[in-house]
């Protein structure tokens, strides 16, 4: 197995610090304004793994797109290492719920996409194989995406971002469509990749257990328009276990923050 990123010694240097300051955002649909984010503020430390937890459709994914630089917030500022984000950048990469691999490209060509777009493919072609190796897809390098299972496709999507050595990984419910077994496997995999490569991770999820298993801090959002209604630090060592008493306590705490105590 080959590590793609610099060794974890310079982890603090490699991960991006993300600052979200008073961000509000809205969409115009049929002449009506649809508010999706309301005065959202938080900070993610370099190399941290945090989760944005909230009900489906509350606006978390929109926030992720803003951090990726795909859209600009109507109000407020978002910064990476103190620099305002004004557009997309290969240091901040998104993984969507759908793998959205290009069906006309083989797995290898999909993974090579970022290097190709930036004209680095000639010098750094070896990184493509390393990334495929990292997610365990070397045997499927020359296969087209429609021949892959859901889990394998999502691995390929991960390799497609990891090959670019990102300092911030934005995960938009990347495991949402997978069956529960594949999902557990991929959770462990994500954790391993993050621990090895030391990028900052922001995971959007509506799965309380997933947030608890993976992240160091959970930011809880309200229904749309999304506001931050609580922050819970997860002070558990990795790997975490669902039946750990502290895990159970934290889960109760999180559900209470979400206003779901009656679910217990």
């Amino acid at each position: 197995m080959v590590a793609l990123a610099p060794s974890s010694a310079d982890a603090a240097l490699h991960g991006l610090k993300v600052q979200v300051r008073n961000v509000s955002h809205a969409f115009d649909t049929n002449g009506e304004q649809l508010d999706v984010l309301d005065e959202v503020s938080f900070t993610v430390q370099p190399g941290a793994f945090i989760s944005l937890l909230g009900p489906s459709g509350c606006g978390k994914s929109t926030l992720l797109r803003l951090i990726a630089g795909l859209d600009e917030p109507r109000e407020g500022k978002i910064g990476a290492n103190g620099v305002r984000i004004v557009g997309p950048d290969p240091s901040r990469l998104l993984v969507f719920q759908d793998p959205t691999l290009y069906p006309w490209r083989t797995v290898r060509q999909n993974v090579a996409l970022g290097l190709e777009a930036r004209g680095l493919i000639r010098e750094q072609a070896h990184r493509v194989d390393e990334a495929l190796d990292l997610v365990g897809l070397s045997a499927f390098a020359d296969v087209f995406p429609n021949q892959l299972s859901g889990g394998m496709a999502q691995r390929a999507a991960l390799a497609r971002v990891l090959v670019n050595n990102p300092s911030l990984l934005l995960l938009d419910e990347p495991l949402g469509r997978l069956d529960s077994l594949t999902r557990m496997t991929m959770q462990a995999e994500l954790l391993r990749l993050w621990q090895d490569a030391a990028f900052t991770s922001i995971l959007v999820t509506h799965d309380v257990e997933e947030a608890l298993l993976l992240s160091q801090q959970v930011i809880v959002f309200s229904h749309r328009p999304a506001r931050v209604i609580g922050t819970v630090d997860i002070d558990l060592p990795y790997p975490r276990h669902r039946d750990d008493p502290r895990f159970v306590t934290l889960r109760r705490e999180l559900l209470a923050t979400m206003g779901l105590e009656h679910q217990l």
């Binding site: 590590a3 045997a139 299972s149 077994l181 557990m184 496997t185 391993r192």
Partner: peptide, 19 residues
């Protein structure tokens, strides 16, 4: 690298797809 064993479960052999 301390990769968990179950990580491999999703990685099938190359014969696993439509022939």
């Amino acid at each position: 690298m301390n990769k968990p064993v179950q990580v491999q479960t999703d990685t099938a052999t190359p014969t696993d797809f439509t022939l």
